[in-house]
């Protein structure tokens, strides 16, 4: 039996597994085998030493987690004020929309007569009679009037003085 086989046998025996008793006796009889067994037992004791360190897990907490959506949970803080605020905001928005859609501007009572106002507008001017011709002909041109006074420009003479 090799050292590894010996230690493996001791390990299995400590775990309560079925082993050959003669082989186990021989393994434990050797100094190395005895030391191995002692080390394994100490190791088991070290692992078991934290047995008291485990806190108790409350069953009720776990049970509560099983049903995380109880109806009354919806009424818990801060869901209530948040829900109320959201409802008010929604109602205000709906009311504003309805009011804006239904308002048609200011209305007047037709039974009350309004003030009488007389408005006089000038008669429209008659359009000038331009005659039937649309294009003036040379023969139709009007002779310009004869001038009543003729002023002649003479260089060096101030024409303002005599006038």
């Amino acid at each position: 039996m090799t050292d590894e086989e010996r230690d493996q046998l001791i390990s299995a025996a400590l775990d309560g597994e079925r082993v050959n008793l003669e082989d186990l006796r021989a393994a434990l009889a050797s100094p190395a085998g005895g030391a191995t067994a002692a080390e394994f037992i100490l190791l088991r004791a070290a692992v078991s030493n934290d047995r008291d360190g485990a806190p108790g897990v409350v069953v009720a907490v776990a049970e509560e987690r099983q049903h995380p959506r109880h109806p009354w949970r919806l009424l818990s803080w801060p869901r209530v004020p948040a829900g109320l605020a959201a409802s008010l905001l929604l109602a205000a928005a709906a009311a504003s929309f309805w009011a804006g859609k239904s308002w048609r501007g200011p209305t007047f009572d037709s039974a009350i007569p309004g003030p009488a106002v007389a408005v006089t507008t000038p008669a429209p001017k008659a359009a000038p009679d331009i005659g039937p011709a649309t294009r003036p002909q040379v023969g139709d041109m009007v002779v310009p009037p004869t001038p009543a006074r003729v002023l002649r420009f003479t260089p060096g003479v101030d024409w303002h003085e005599g006038s």
């Binding site: 493996q8 394994f40 190791l43």
Partner: peptide, 19 residues
Amino acid sequence: RARLFRTRMQLRAALQGLR
């Protein structure tokens, strides 16, 4: 069986310096 034995040997070696 092999895992347990291997683990015990490793832990034994690791803890020998602490005792």
